[in-house]
Write a protein that binds this DNA or RNA. Structure first.
Length: 306
DNA sequence: AACGGCTTCAACCGCAGAGGG
DNA sequence: CCCCTCTGCGGTTGAAGCCGT
């Protein structure tokens, strides 16, 4: 009756992922690229359902994920986009390429919902406790105007993003609002090299990128150039993103997938590049990726810019 | 120190849509 | 078309950590 389970439930492990499992999964993606999740358990020996593997990759392991607290700008964008799009977390996430839809959804449910509720409550009630929900209320009017302005801004951003073929949503968004670029601005080298022309997918992550930074230490000369080049732009980023820029500088040759949907990393182009990158790294006779992964995954003190 | 309630977020579940045969 | 598989998405859950008493 109904759909068959996505995988054989017998012997399938559930719950939190272990570092070992992460290593196995990342190794698989390094080798085969993201996609073909069905084959992951058989190829890697992971006792995980394919869906679980895909989720682990997209929500946690894939490059370009920014972890830690949300910035005010990100928060503002989420509020605006949620007002405009509703609970379309994937669509909202496409405007915040460093954040997963799951992260945004969680953040909305745990932080922003309450925040807005509080805000609304404080705006709707005057000091003497009278509800100001009447249409003539000044504060409510202001609140509504503010909200409307935010929605209009978001609409404008969406309109622009949709009207420009294959352009970066983030970039477009940033051009039509007074919100500074929250991600791409920290990766000037990406724009410079034109590798992100069809992508909004931030090419760095605190997790794997950090790992790869050490792994690609041999490129440090070029990287330092990029670090210098990016330093001015970093000024427009918050502190968290400064570190991101640093990571990105060592990640220049990594080709991110099309960020419109991070799942599109499974496209042959993106996959091939990711794959190719990993091959190049291996050929450099550096520390094996798996070793680096291990050190990263097991290093409890190596906090990730939270 | 111990306990219980609250919060957070990674992970799971189930459905829907896309696409290939 | 129809069926099947794979993937994406949004809602929900539950373990772990946090915090107040």
């Amino acid at each position: 009756m109904g759909r068959p389970p996505c995988c054989d439930k017998m012997g399938v492990k559930k719950g939190p992922w272990t570092p070992e499992e992460d290593i196995m999964l990342v190794s698989f993606v390094q080798e085969h690229g993201p996609g073909n999740w069905r084959t992951v358990p058989t190829h890697t020996g992971l006792r995980r359902c394919s869906k679980s593997c895909r989720l682990r990759w997209t929500n946690y392991l894939r490059p370009g994920i920014k972890r830690g607290s949300f910035t005010d700008q990100e928060e503002k964008m989420i509020i605006q986009l949620q007002a405009l799009l509703g609970n379309k977390w994937a669509a909202i996430a496409s405007y915040l390429p460093e954040r997963t839809d799951n992260d945004i959804k969680n953040y909305w449910n745990t932080h922003l919902k309450k925040k807005l509720k509080k805000l609304e409550a404080s705006d709707l009630y005057s000091n003497d406790g009278h509800c100001l929900s009447s249409l003539n209320s000044t504060s409510r009017g202001q609140w509504e105007r503010t909200l409307q302005a935010d929605i209009n801004t978001a609409k404008q951003a969406l309109k622009n993003a949709l009207s420009l073929d294959k352009s970066s949503p983030i970039s477009e968004y940033s051009t039509v609002t007074d919100v500074k670029p929250i991600n791409i601005g920290c990766y000037p080298h990406i724009k410079k090299e034109g590798k992100m022309s069809t992508s909004t997918y931030a090419s760095s992550a605190e997790n794997i990128a950090k790992l790869l930074k050490q792994w690609t230490r041999s490129d440090s000369t070029n990287n330092s150039e990029h670090s210098k080049a990016s330093s001015s732009t970093q000024l427009s980023c918050n502190n968290n993103n400064n570190a991101m820029a640093e990571y990105s500088s060592s990640f220049e040759s990594f080709e991110p997938s099309n960020s419109d949907q991070y799942s599109q990393a499974a496209t042959p182009e993106a996959t091939g590049k990711f794959h190719g990158e990993s091959k190049r790294e291996v050929d450099d006779d550096e520390v094996p990726l798996s070793v680096m992964l291990e050190s990263w995954l097991f290093d409890e003190n190596d906090d990730l810019l939270i």
